[in-house]
């Protein structure tokens, strides 16, 4: 389970995909070339029927990857076994080839943060993440891909840079990488650093798939909102990544303020054009 195969399997994520959300289920169902979607794992009840529209995609043979957002793999405490069992159950329910989660924590001291928070890039944090990822891998029926997050601030005592921090975690766990290019852009914009230099140093052979999303400038920060158009800088990073090593799949995340269908189709087509994968619209 911990062996990381960089080769896309026949059922693995392939080509251009889109984050399945109930609000755009009809739009997603109408994409003729679609082979890959993601579903937010916490929104699926593994014991009950799948949400309307998602079951049909499964029957069509569209690959469905459960994407967890509340596991808190980066929490100092051991990951919650009930949340882990839920993620494993969703993976089985949608016959997923892999699942994904974040290198982040979402709660501490009995308080929910409500979103993904960054870890210090320290040996202590590496150890905490690695221990939780191993716990997760022991329970999950499929491989796990880890997504580095976008953050607005740094911890004061980073011992490692982003590339070393991520590589240490991936090496110690054998996990795959879910590379979010919007997060790469956001971090470079808000926290400094050259996004291209980061791409040069990440283990791109471990990328299971890529996230692309929109955002907006607000209050002197770039916010990775998932509710705004994909900026040209992020599309440029798709090109930069594909020059280095084209990932098996790229997925557009949109989480609100859904635009007209033509606009979403345009974003998917732009993703196909930037990566050289077939259009799915």
């Amino acid at each position: 389970m911990t062996s990381a195969s960089p080769e896309p399997t026949p059922t693995g994520p392939y080509g251009v995909g889109v984050g399945w959300r109930p609000e755009i289920a009809g739009f997603v169902a109408g994409l003729p070339g679609l082979r890959f979607v993601e579903v937010v794992a916490e929104t699926v009840n593994p014991a009950g029927p799948l949400p309307d529209g998602l079951a049909e995609l499964c029957e069509r043979g569209v690959t469905v990857v459960p994407h967890g957002v509340k596991l808190s793999l980066g929490g100092a405490e051991p990951v919650d076994p009930a949340r882990l069992a839920h993620l494993a159950g969703v993976a089985a329910a949608v016959n997923a080839p892999l699942v994904s989660e974040h290198i982040a924590f979402v709660r501490a001291g009995g308080l929910e943060a409500g979103h993904l928070l960054p870890l210090p890039r320290s040996r202590e944090a590496v150890a905490a993440v690695v221990a939780n990822v191993r716990r997760a891998q022991a329970e999950l029926p499929v491989p796990l891909a880890l997504e580095p997050i976008a953050a607005l601030f740094d911890w004061p005592d980073d011992e490692l840079d982003e590339a070393d921090f991520l590589t240490e975690i991936l090496d110690a766990t054998g996990a795959l990488l879910l590379l979010d290019l919007a997060n790469v852009h956001a971090n470079a914009r808000n926290r400094g650093g050259d996004p291209r230099a980061l791409l040069d140093r990440l283990p791109l052979d471990r990328v299971a798939y890529v996230h692309v999303a929109g955002g907006a400038e607000q209050g002197n920060f770039y916010h990775d909102t998932h509710t705004d158009p994909v900026p040209v800088e992020v599309l440029d990073l798709v090109g930069e990544l594909c020059v280095r090593r084209r990932p098996p799949a790229l997925l557009l995340e949109r989480d609100g303020h859904y635009p007209p269908a033509a606009e979403l189709r345009g974003e998917l087509d732009a993703l196909a054009a930037a990566s050289g994968y077939p259009v799915v619209t």
Partner: peptide, 19 residues
Amino acid sequence: GAAPADSGEGLAARQAELV
């Protein structure tokens, strides 16, 4: 590289402070 049960208390407190 020890498990968080051993090493995580400092991190746990600091994460709690931040949240």
